[in-house]
């Protein structure tokens, strides 16, 4: 089964997303709580899919968008799904420009998210 990496600064969201994936039989191989951590963990674990909270605070010179860009620089074929709150159109657009493959809007609907991931893994 596909391996998923979950990036979100909120533990609650990480747990919620993990449950969505695990219930569906995916393996959540690693989680990251900061943008910098996300980039490093990606390089280490090379997951099949990444869900990336786009509205993460800037830490160690890197925010959500920065993480998307770094991950795609490292692996142009990375499958990054952006998770955004309503109204952050410009961030989503920037992420897509950087190479994010798809996005979902919070509050995340499990079926929608799984749909996205399934589509990317096909």
């Amino acid at each position: 089964m596909a391996r998923v990496m979950i990036v979100d600064d909120a533990l609650f969201m990480r747990q919620l997303l993990t449950k969505i994936f695990v219930d569906e039989g995916y393996e959540v191989c690693v989680e990251a709580g900061t943008a910098r951590d996300a980039v490093e963990k990606y390089k280490e674990f090379k997951p099949d899919v990444v869900t990336m909270d786009i509205v993460m605070p800037m830490m160690e010179d890197l925010d959500g968008i920065g993480a998307v860009k770094e991950i795609l620089k490292f692996d142009p074929r990375a499958k990054v799904v952006v998770v955004s709150v309503m109204g952050e159109q410009s961030l989503v657009v920037e992420a897509i420009k950087a190479g994010a493959k798809d996005f979902v809007v919070k509050p995340v609907r499990p079926a929608r998210l799984l749909d996205v991931v399934k589509g990317l893994l096909r």
Partner: peptide, 13 residues
Amino acid sequence: CLMKESRAFLIIT
């Protein structure tokens, strides 16, 4: 569909 402008942008991209 929420944020359909971004959705359209993704499709066009």
